[in-house]
Design a protein around this nucleic acid. Structure first.
Length: 297
DNA sequence: TTGCAGGGGTCAA
DNA sequence: TTGACCCCTGCA
């Protein structure tokens, strides 16, 4: 069948999607936006998202999703992988800037995943003052302890726990998952969300600044984490999360000097506008893959 | 083997 | 504005 420009076909529990462009699994999964996808020895990725475990591989313009069906593709994965967005157009617009053009050339297959908002909130609270391998380990542990077990090809996988579950877990048990001092943020944020002390339902309707401020009511959520939550849950695309990598790459490529967060933020807003989030993602991936700004001993 | 430096945002003083 | 927070990795 044809679905929004893609040829989609199901065989057994696999979905084949043709006409895929501007899509590279490594660019997508290793660009710091998600923590639950793991590269397999055959080059495919297996991950848990949206309460499901799937395996995904690509071959030219063909995408193969294993352990799912057409209904789920249309209702879940099409949106999750942002297949309705024209990345060729985004890249063309951003490439008018020569520095961006080079960054895009190195990570041209990036897509911004539209991840579950609740999971994004907890994941990026954990991400603060932390590195990617440890973040992945902590989230895996939390899921294994409090999520629902699933089986795929003989291995166990676990869903990300619901807010009702996580908010009822004693602090000490959250801490045992390796969260460290962040455990109280997770517990308290869960409680506030359950009690609707922050309004998640209308975040998408708010002005971006208002949405950021709303999220920053949650403990453990500062400006950077709020930006990440909005961007990687597909809620707002004009944010520009500045972590150490983005700061370094901006200082090195655009400013040639040490620069304040505010100056970088203002510059990104004026330079990239509504596409700031996409620009950030290309720059982050570029900075990390080239180790830009890392002092070599 | 042990220990120490480095990495990484938010909070509270 | 600055120090404390937690744990993993890499390297003497």
């Amino acid at each position: 069948m044809l679905y929004k420009g893609y040829e989609v076909e199901q065989k057994d529990n696999k979905v084949y999607v043709k006409n895929i462009r501007d899509f590279d699994l490594t660019d997508i999964f290793e660009s710091g936006q998600c923590f639950r996808w793991k590269k397999q020895t055959d080059g495919s990725f297996t991950g848990v998202a949206m309460d499901r475990v799937i395996n995904i591989r690509s071959d030219g313009d063909l995408l193969i999703l294993d352990n799912t069906n057409i209904d789920e593709f249309i209702n879940i994965w099409f949106n999750y992988f942002d297949l309705g967005t024209d990345y060729a157009m985004i890249k063309e617009t951003l490439s008018k800037n020569s520095i961006m053009k080079e960054a895009i050339a190195s990570g041209g297959g990036i897509r911004l995943l539209r991840q579950d908002l609740w999971e994004a909130i907890i994941s990026f609270i954990i991400s603060a003052n932390n590195n990617i391998p440890r973040i992945m380990k902590i989230i895996d542990t939390i899921a294994a302890c409090f999520g629902r077990r699933m089986e795929y090809k003989g291995d166990s996988y676990y869903t990300f726990p619901k807010m009702e579950v996580l908010s009822s877990i004693p602090l000490e048990q959250i801490k045992k998952c390796g969260t460290g001092y962040r455990c109280k943020y997770i517990t308290e944020a869960s409680r506030m969300i359950i009690k609707e002390e922050v309004n998640l339902c209308t975040l998408g309707l708010m002005d971006t600044e208002d949405a950021k401020n709303e999220l920053q009511k949650l403990p453990g959520v500062g400006p950077k984490v709020a930006d990440c939550i909005l961007l990687f849950s597909g809620t707002k695309f004009d944010v520009f999360p500045i972590d150490v990598w983005v700061k370094r790459v901006m200082e090195e490529l655009y400013f040639s000097k040490e620069t304040s967060m505010n100056e970088i933020k203002d510059f990104a807003k004026s330079q990239f506008g509504l596409l700031a989030g996409y620009a950030q993602q290309y720059l982050f991936y570029y900075a990390r893959s080239r180790q830009i700004g890392v002092r070599k001993g």
